[in-house]
Nucleic acid binder design. Structure first.
Lengths: 221, 221, 221, 221
DNA sequence: AATGAATGAGGCTTCATTCAT
DNA sequence: TATGAATGAAGCCTCATTCAT
């Protein structure tokens, strides 16, 4: 029911009341920026849009980040840092065979990442690395290396114990990881454009993919 | 092919090229645009750069494409159309078991795509679909559907014949295809930034990945 | 003056200063503004800088002056008013020949002006008059006219008495005054940029200049 | 008589015809910039105003100068360079006594400078040196040093020959030069605001000032 | 057809001023 | 009264597009 014209509500006010929320702003801005940068790309997102989505005025953005580019870097590093924290914790001290460990990591951790805003970071990194070399170095050191090492070590152990057959470990890691990243990319690109197209449920896919690959790592080639 | 005896010798190259140029311009502009759009993103690429890389002046671009956006659409549709042509041809009338067919499609056709400029289109599509809904519809109808249908049909046949175990076919297709697309994305994003980092050879990865998945599709889960 | 025996010793300084502050604020703001406006120009000086140099926060400035422009006007009029007061007093009722009077005015009063913050006002006026017409009217009425009248009258008396030869009085006044103003301008422009360049001592220059001009006013042309 | 509403003239056109005048633009932009920078100050002049006064659009300015700051530097160096050329030529190989030479330099060269747009450069330099240290170095090396050397040498010769009495040469140079610069500054500051105020004719002042100082340099102190 | 000078809408950023605390 | 977070108008500059040559 629309407001009657003679009964303006609070939202009609020309100047919504100013709020002083110094503590909350940085995270709000980062969240808004991640959504928009992933949706439209860094260059095509106006800084005013980011501010608007974070519920502040244009100028406020610049009280917290000195430029749009610095905001981008903050978005990526802040998001990834917290996620990295999470996996490390997750994998540390896990007991059981390799297959179970991988199954757990994927269904627990990856499923959660897929549902979180972090899923957008992959699109952002792929889209913007070539324009911002800092990102490449950071991403490689903080994400690619640790993730490859973690999964690679599990696969390597499996090969050593005879659970898996001999093969190129780096390739096996890619076979495991790449589809997960693609799932994230799809969610924020084609998937976001065509909600009507029925696709396999992402979580079910994750489970099935891990099983296929684990199974494929075992048998005779 | 040596000069025909009646053709002028050195000055031969002076005119025909200029003739050929006019015909070749659209393709040269598309090639330049694909490289740059994939490298920097559509919004961050200046149309003057595209013209420069194609060896013409700024204004000339607009004699062939009415706007930067139309150029983008031309880039995507032209590249994909020719590639689609190619696979259809490839798969049509293939005889043999499912595994062999998939092996062939991937190692022959995909390996070639990975090495061609078409590999950049995937990055471009992922980057820009949300800004240009036309692209989404086109890409889905012309690429996603046919490719999914093609591979899906092969996998389906394999399940029907008992060669593969029962499972969600769409998911199996994703398990096969996603890493290939990621390979292309990587080539044009992180991979382009860090040439020094050693990775598994892409073609070897393609072979290994297909074997892992094919093997995984067969065995008991 | 030593502490009075009944006054608290160290803690003495703690409270009175805070009291004094409130009274002193306008002058502190004006002093800070004069320095900065003269250094960087009115438009290029941020009001926050003025506040910072005066030791208060941005908002506080606006408790004392309603806008940056009003602060500018206050800076100019306040500084000049107090200086005008001083000369008038100085010249009133002086006895002696014209040359001596001029010599006194210049070496006593001008030398002092040169060393005081007032020297910066000349740069400020020259820089900003055309943007703020109020300043022109004020400066002309309160500074140019009185000063020209004062010096002009002395020179005129000298010509009348035969001490000086006949000439355009306004021009003679300019010959006397202009270099003094230039000295102030130089101090706050080039002079401030290149402290290493040796120049004639300003006070010595003032004395020599007055002698040259007085001498020139006398002799046969 | 205003145009009748039904008879629009050429000046009513929304887009005045584009003119391609690559050769003439730089000088036109410099001239426009000098006027405006001197009038309002560098910071208070919008780059669009400069373009408009030069008869071009905003963007055109940036085809010729990469930033407003570079335009400022071009304005100053271009103007001064051509003027420096002129004096050097003027003084080279002059014959006659010192007084005559100075008289000539002043009445010929300075009078011309005063009437030319170059007169505005002095205001610009004084106003902006502290913000742009490059200008200080350039101005000192190209203007202050040569001018001081030129006039200083003449005065020095006069002292050596007994035509002038002994004194600080640098000071004498300042006594000669400073009023000329002040005349230029006045023209572009107070003088521009109050055209109604009668002042001594600048050219007459220049002549009288030189005579006063020359006379003052001679006589007994 | 090709060029590149010219244009001006639009984006990033600054900063004078306001206002909640 | 003092603060400094918040605002948004306004300025610098870029670049897609146009058009005179």
């Amino acid at each position: 029911m629309p407001d009657s014209p003679t009964a303006p509500t609070a939202s009609n006010a020309a100047h919504p009341p100013r709020q002083r929320r110094k503590e909350a702003r940085p995270q709000e801005l980062i969240d808004a920026a991640l959504e928009l940068f992933a949706e439209k790309g860094f260059a095509a997102t106006r800084s005013e849009e980011v501010a608007a989505r974070a519920g502040v005025a244009k100028g406020t953005l610049y009280l917290y980040y000195p430029s749009k580019e610095e905001l981008l870097k903050a978005v990526i590093s802040q998001r990834l840092s917290s996620e990295i924290e999470a996996v490390s914790e997750f994998a540390r001290g896990y007991r059981g065979d390799c297959a179970s460990l991988l199954r757990e990591v994927y269904t627990e951790w990856w499923s959660r990442v897929f549902d979180s805003p972090t899923s957008a970071v992959f699109k952002l990194v792929i889209t913007e690395v070539r324009n911002f070399p800092d990102i490449a170095a950071f991403y490689r050191a903080e994400v690619v290396e640790p993730a490859t090492a973690l999964v690679g070590e599990i696969v390597g152990r499996g090969i050593a114990s005879g659970e898996f057959r001999a093969m190129d470990v780096r390739g096996a890691v890619m076979s495991l990881i790449f589809p997960m990243i693609m799932l994230c990319l799809h969610k924020h690109s084609l998937g976001a454009c065509m909600p009507e197209v029925e696709m396999m449920d992402p979580h079910a896919f994750i489970r099935q993919h891990v099983e296929i690959v684990l199974n494929g790592l075992r048998g005779r080639a």
